[in-house]
Simulated scan of single mutants.
Amino acid sequence: MLLEVSGVSVTFDGFRAINNLSFQIASAELRAVIGPNGAGKTTMMDIITGKTRPDTGKITYGRPGKNLLKMSESAIARIGIGRKFQRPTVFENQSVFDNLVMALKKNRSPLDVAFYRRSQEDIKKVEDLAAEIGLTEQLHRMSGELSHGQKQWLEIGMLLAQDPKLLLVDEPAAGMTPEEREKTTDILRKAAKTRAVVVVEHDMEFVRRLNCRVTVLHEGSVLAEGSIDHVTKDQSVIDVYLGR
């Protein structure tokens, strides 16, 4: 396993947002996480990335297992956990090329940054990333000129440029056209061949296209887990989520 969450709970002002949550993610796996509003999906990602500290439980990452609960947000990012929020955040006044170059995994000391010179290896990495996210023809456009879907792909590319081993993606299909959703599915499935990708999503048709294991959260716990066909036929899932 790449990530193991064991017995994690967290309470905010008397509200139990995560309740004895336990699950595992393999090192090269695509996983979808679904559930009603308030199920704990965002809090789960906050805990994994160090933004929120749980009251109880344990989270281990990698081999040998590192205890994420003893690490800062920046340290967690450096060991290979990346997160994409629902709203794309790119440098709109910079080109697609420059956004990807800035995101490449490099030493970030002031001296390294001051004397950085773009190498042929860096250019090749950016070109490969652009091809992977479908933005080869947009490389020299200003990022602010891209469509919403293209900005989402660019941000995914910027995260992939950091070579994460675990990528957390929040509602990537939101606001996309059907064609953009299809392309996003392809990008995420390809990325999951070499790393773990966890997708939090509400669009059930998008989740079905991902064709992966699905974890259903409810009231901060795992309600059901399995294929999309398995969880959508689970009566408890229908009652608390799909039936709405």
Rank of each mutant, 00 (worst) to 15 (best):
S22R: 09
F23Q: 06
F23C: 08
Q24K: 15
Q24E: 14
Q24C: 12
I25E: 13
I25W: 13
A28Q: 14
E29S: 10
E29W: 07
L30Q: 08
L30F: 05
R31P: 08
P36N: 08
N37R: 08
N37W: 07
G38I: 01
G38A: 02
G40Y: 02
G40D: 00
K41D: 10
T42H: 03
M44V: 00
M45L: 09
M45Q: 08
M45T: 12
D46S: 15
I47F: 13
T49F: 07
G50W: 00
G50A: 02
T52D: 07
R53C: 12
R53W: 02
P54A: 12
D55G: 10
G57H: 04
K58G: 03
K58V: 03
I59Q: 01
T60W: 00
T60L: 00
G62L: 04
P64K: 13
G65D: 10
K66Q: 10
L68C: 05
M71G: 08
S74I: 12
S74L: 12
S74E: 14
I76E: 02
I76Q: 03
G80R: 12
G80C: 15
G82E: 11
G82V: 08
R83P: 06
R83I: 06
R83Q: 12
K84S: 11
F85H: 12
Q86M: 09
Q86L: 02
R87G: 02
P88C: 01
T89Y: 02
V90L: 05
F91T: 09
N93S: 11
Q94A: 06
Q94S: 07
V96S: 01
D98M: 02
N99G: 14
L100G: 07
V101W: 04
M102W: 00
M102G: 09
A103S: 14
A103E: 08
K106A: 07
N107I: 11
R108F: 03
R108G: 05
S109V: 08
L111G: 04
L111D: 03
A114Y: 02
F115D: 13
Y116W: 10
R117M: 11
R117T: 15
R118H: 14
E121F: 04
D122I: 14
I123F: 05
K125E: 15
E127N: 15
D128I: 14
A130G: 08
E132A: 15
E132C: 12
I133H: 10
L135A: 09
E137N: 13
Q138S: 15
